[in-house]
């Protein structure tokens, strides 16, 4: 039986879609079978970030309306084995789908795949309820700013009421430099407020923008700090124990200091 994980945040623009695309790809690179589901009906984006836009024939709406079989609507990602996308309909809107229908799709997908990642829309309304209906776990994506954190806090409350657990946190767009000069919350401050388990910290990486525009998730090109962070999160999702590096300690000066400390 596969795991159904909803990727959500409350606030928009914090990196839900980017995280879904990268974690899905990273899990597939770790030899898992994965479906990424775009639940943002009417404002779909996951297909673009995954670079699969041109290959969509059927959407989840067609499956619900029984226009096609579920496995026919899945778009196979040719770059890696075991990665599929279920696109959202761009013509409909969120009220056209019922939470039960999403749940039925998720329950079917989990019988054939190791991971089902659902890319939730922003907000706490119908779109979010649809996205979380079939999930048994959640990943909260937040950036270290107060408005995103308050929204994440709201979402965590709603997920807990819906008995969706565990809830793991991805701290996105983390800037060691800003934390260093005291103008950004560090991960301890964020965890102090949200009080859930941290599964990963993704540093600010300008590579994300180019990768989105080219439709190639970051994790395909190893080496960038963002790609490494997503690979680590994917490994943690599969149960491996990998420590979270302390990004705040980075920077040339700190590296030199640490080097001296080690020598002693």
């Amino acid at each position: 039986m596969g795991r159904v994980i909803v990727v959500t945040s409350g606030k928009g623009g914090v990196g839900k879609t980017t995280s879904t695309a990268n974690l899905g790809t990273a899990l597939a690179l770790l030899d898992k079978t994965v479906v990424v589901v775009d639940a943002d009906v009417g404002l779909r984006n996951l297909d673009i970030v995954m670079g699969l836009e041109s290959r969509i024939v059927y959407t989840s709406m067609d499956v619900i309306e029984k226009q096609c079989e579920l496995n026919k609507a899945l778009v196979r990602d040719r770059r890696v084995d075991g990665l599929m996308l279920l696109a959202a309909s761009q013509k409909n809107n969120k009220d056209d789908i019922q939470p039960e229908q999403m749940k039925a799709i998720c329950d079917k997908l989990r019988t054939t795949h190791d991971f089902v990642l659902i890319d939730s829309p922003a907000g706490i309304e119908r779109g979010f309820r649809n996205a979380s209906a079939g999930a048994d776990e959640a990943i909260i994506v937040t950036t270290p700013d107060v408005s995103a954190i308050r929204d994440a806090d709201r979402i965590i409350g709603l997920l807990q009421n819906a008995r969706i657990e565990p809830i793991n946190l991805v701290l996105n767009r983390f800037s060691a430099e800003l934390v260093g000069n005291g103008s950004m919350m560090d991960q301890d401050d964020v965890l102090d407020i949200l009080n859930i388990d941290l599964i990963g910290v993704v540093p600010e990486d300008s590579g994300v923008i180019t990768s989105t525009n080219r439709g190639i998730p970051l994790v395909y090109e190893d080496g960038s700090p963002g790609a490494q962070a997503y690979m680590r999160i994917a490994r943690r999702l599969t149960g491996q124990r990998i420590p979270i590096p302390d990004f705040a300690q980075k920077g040339l000066l700190n590296n030199i200091m640490n080097w001296f400390k080690k020598k002693k």
Partner: peptide, 26 residues
């Protein structure tokens, strides 16, 4: 016995409230 998160309201007009956790912003 839990943290009260943004958007949640805890009300007890009959008496006192004791919260084993935080009361978060919002």
């Amino acid at each position: 016995p839990h943290t009260i998160r943004s958007g949640q309201t805890e009300e007890f007009p009959q008496g006192s409230l004791i919260i084993y956790g935080d009361v978060n912003s919002g």
